[in-house]
Measured scan of single mutants.
Amino acid sequence: SIVTKIISIVQERQNMDDGAPVKTRDIADAAGLSIYQVRLYLEQLHDVGVLEKVNAGKGVPGLWRLL
């Protein structure tokens, strides 16, 4: 499923980069989806406690990390 793919992308990127959070844009590119589509999935995963959003604010790139 797309959700499983997104989780594995975040996991893979974090492992490659010493646990650093992953940008929404990088996840979207790797999943082959638009940034808006991916954001909806990321928000859902956040709501159920799978991911945390590391930063927030208007015009700030979203950074995500697995919990």
Rank of each mutant, 00 (worst) to 15 (best):
S1V: 09
S1R: 12
V10N: 00
P21S: 07
R65N: 04
G19M: 06
K23W: 05
I2Q: 04
V60Y: 11
I6G: 00
Y36M: 11
E52A: 06
I35K: 03
W64I: 03
Q37M: 14
D18I: 07
K53I: 05
G59A: 06
Q37R: 11
E52N: 02
K58S: 11
D18P: 10
L42W: 01
K5S: 05
S8V: 07
L42A: 01
G19L: 04
A31C: 12
N55K: 08
Y41H: 05
G49K: 03
G62M: 14
A30Y: 05
V3A: 08
G62R: 08
Q14G: 05
K5M: 12
V3W: 15
I35S: 04
G19S: 05
V60S: 14
Y41V: 13
V50Y: 05
R39G: 09
L66E: 03
S1T: 10
E12Q: 09
V38L: 04
R39H: 08
S34F: 15
K5I: 09
E52D: 05
A28E: 03
R39L: 15
A56Y: 09
G59M: 05
P21K: 03
G57C: 07
E52F: 03
S1C: 15
K5Q: 09
W64N: 02
D26S: 04
Q14D: 03
L66M: 09
V48G: 07
V3G: 04
D17F: 15
V50S: 02
E52H: 04
V10W: 01
G32Y: 03
A31V: 13
S34C: 08
V50H: 03
A31N: 01
R25G: 08
P61E: 15
V54D: 02
Y36E: 14
P61H: 14
N15C: 15
Y41E: 01
Q44K: 14
V10Q: 01
Q37D: 08
K5T: 09
Y41P: 00
V50P: 03
V54M: 05
D29Y: 11
S8L: 12
A30P: 01
L42M: 02
H46Q: 11
V3T: 09
E43C: 09
V3F: 15
A20E: 07
A31G: 02
G32S: 06
A28R: 02
E12I: 11
V48R: 13
G62D: 15
I35P: 04
S1F: 11
I35H: 05
W64M: 00
A56K: 09
V48K: 13
Y36G: 11
V48M: 15
A30E: 08
E43K: 08
A31L: 10
I2A: 04
V60H: 12
V60M: 14
K23G: 09
A31D: 01
R25I: 09
Y36K: 14
I2C: 10
S1H: 12
K53F: 07
P61Q: 14
Q14L: 04
D26N: 03
Q44A: 14
R25F: 06
H46K: 11
V50I: 13
V54F: 04
K5Y: 08
Q14Y: 08
V10T: 01
V10G: 00
P21G: 15
A56T: 11
M16Q: 10
Q37E: 13
Q11A: 13
Y41M: 07
P21H: 05
I6A: 01
G19I: 03
I7Q: 02
N15K: 11
R13A: 07
A28P: 00
R25E: 14
S1Q: 11
V50T: 04
V54T: 04
D18G: 14
G59V: 04
V60G: 15
